[in-house]
Nucleic acid binder design. Structure first.
Lengths: 343, 343
DNA sequence: ATGAAAGCGCTAACAG
DNA sequence: CTGTTAGCGCTTTCAT
């Protein structure tokens, strides 16, 4: 098929020297005479010789490819992460293979396996919302595949991780609501199987505590494994139907924030004012014209860069060298629009 | 490094047969005795043998990988396309390598070259906004690399393409504005080097014509190669500053629509009503609470699926078989929110 | 029904 | 300084 590709042999034949000499000349090996080097380089240039990366991979058992398992590409945050990964990987000479789990555990297992079979040099993982069993990841890690988690990390595996400071972000967001005068703040939680969601709950609780507000477990609703607008709307309705209804909502995802916002407007309530909303997310909410929602913005691009960097560092470490797992914690940014500061 | 991976040789040694027999047994070759097959399969299973895909690639000069050149992953539309590509590719046993041009011509050239060097079996391309020279793509196509364009296609290369019916979408959107009573509709155009933007302009003009409205070239502003909010805002200001200012805006991108919307609100004008806006885009505008903008929604996921399908069909065609290039035209959907229908 | 050998493209030890 | 040889893991004639 692509048999028309120039190989080292072609150059050797043309110049009537051996393939090894060509190979050496091309890598500027000191043994080769300047004259030969020049000839080889010029011919290679002329024929537009491109080394066959597959042959290289087979020999070196290195593919210069990193695999990325991502829950949902369409999510603005995650696409931003990919962008960051690409940025660093590309600069370091690596290709990026993307596998999307679509928040499905089963799919995640298949993806990691497929990436491994594709002989990626290392793997970047953010777990699906469904994942509670870590065998598929543990087995890869045990086999020595360089692995770095980002955002949705697995606590029980001892490798490098890049996370957002969820506790702090959640604390700041809650504090912001309190400072705006809200007193009964509901929390639309995510699945507790993911550390980040537990930490956000903790940050929320701590902020209430520090400001002398009670923690009302009735105001803490979980949206479980799913992440859909409909559910968020239902939960919001539940909250609005309470006798002593909340005056603010802390949403753990953009979808949840959106669902809450829509529902509350249907009740004819004003945001902010009647109800305050903080959304832990970072899609384009921040750019909206009606910036009723304060957003905890997550540094996706930096997260991708950092994760790729840690992974490549590990991949390229000498065999005998021990790399200490490292956990990077990135700060969030609270994006407050002027119009949302009032009550 | 990964020398602990089981190979065919290991199985052969263990069973005291030759590697070729193992290979054949694994592929259920009719020559091999049932007994041997059983032994081999069981041992392979037990040792968790996984064929080395690189060795396979080297032999077959097929990588089962497709390369995707995409302008901007973060853009909702494009991330949706990737999702569609992944969906089909994965099901057909292909991996997906993503390269992001970031709307840069230079980067696009490097990306296509890098993908080619990575020996992808085929390539899916959507051109950057900057691209006006097609040599890098033509050369790949000439060399016989299966190639399919999606969304931002290159007219001068004769291969399969998947596009949105931009003319029709634009026509419908403009018609919609006209039917709402708007009469002076501005057009924020994209770079005419990309066919889609030219077609959208045509659709817009045709709709005006069909409804007996004049085409005012002063109302057609181009935002050139860039796609930033600031520029869109400036152009909108220009429009608003006109003595005989437009009463509606047709924006070619989400960013442009957003910029226009913000600017117009700054002027204290109501949308819709004072000014109507139609955005040719499909990010989450459609989900907003204040759905002032009518959106021409593009079928990203289907586009990805379709493109991947066409490409894989071509990749897997027999060497002698001639595949006729095919162009798929997907329909857009006009998403009209109730509140935007009034004037 | 099975094995031996060659080769995909490249590199690196080992000879000169 | 350069060539010969072997081998990465796999498949596939060609023998037997």
């Amino acid at each position: 098929m692509k048999s028309n590709q120039i190989t080292i042999k072609d150059i050797a034949r043309e110049l009537d020297i051996s393939p090894s000499t060509v190979s050496r000349a091309l890598k500027d090996h000191p043994d080769i005479s300047p004259k030969t080097k020049k000839q080889v380089r010029e011919l290679a240039e002329k024929l537009n010789y491109q080394p066959n990366s597959i042959a290289l991979s087979l020999r070196s058992s290195k593919t210069n490819t990193i695999g990325v398992v991502i829950p949902q590409i369409e999510h603005f945050f995650f696409s931003t992460v990919i962008s960051g990964i690409e940025d660093v990987a590309y600069a370091a000479g690596y290709s990026v293979i993307v596998a999307q789990s679509n928040e499905s555990y089963e799919r995640e297992v298949m993806d990691t396996q497929a990436l491994f079979n594709n002989r990626v040099d290392g793997i970047l993982v953010s777990m699906s919302r469904e994942t509670t069993d870590y065998k598929h990841l543990e087995s890869l890690h045990t086999r020595g595949i360089p692995m770095v988690f980002y955002d949705r990390v697995c606590d029980s595996i001892n490798c490098s991780k890049v996370v957002v400071d969820d506790f702090d972000g959640s604390y700041q967001a809650t504090k912001h609501l309190i400072e705006q005068g809200y007193k009964r703040i509901a929390h639309l939680a995510g699945p507790y199987s993911l550390t980040m969601f537990r930490q956000r709950l903790e940050g929320y609780k701590k902020a209430l505590e520090d400001h002398g507000l009670p923690i009302d477990e009735n105001l803490i609703l979980q949206e479980n494994a799913s992440n859909d607008e409909t559910l968020a709307k239902e939960l919001t309705k539940e909250l609005m139907a309470m006798k002593n209804r909340p005056d603010a909502i802390f949403a753990n995802t953009d979808i949840a924030a959106l669902g809450a916002m829509i529902t509350i407007k249907e009740y004819g309530l004003k945001i902010p004012g009647d109800i305050g909303i903080v959304g832990f997310s970072n899609w384009r909410f921040t750019a909206l014209t009606e910036p009723t929602i304060t957003t905890v913005s997550q540094p996706g691009f930096e997260m991708g860069q950092e994760a790729a960097h840690l992974l490549i560092r590990e991949i390229e470490a000498k065999k005998d060298q021990v790399i200490e797992p490292e956990t990077k914690i990135l700060k969030t940014e609270l994006v407050v629009r002027k119009s949302s500061v009032l009550k």
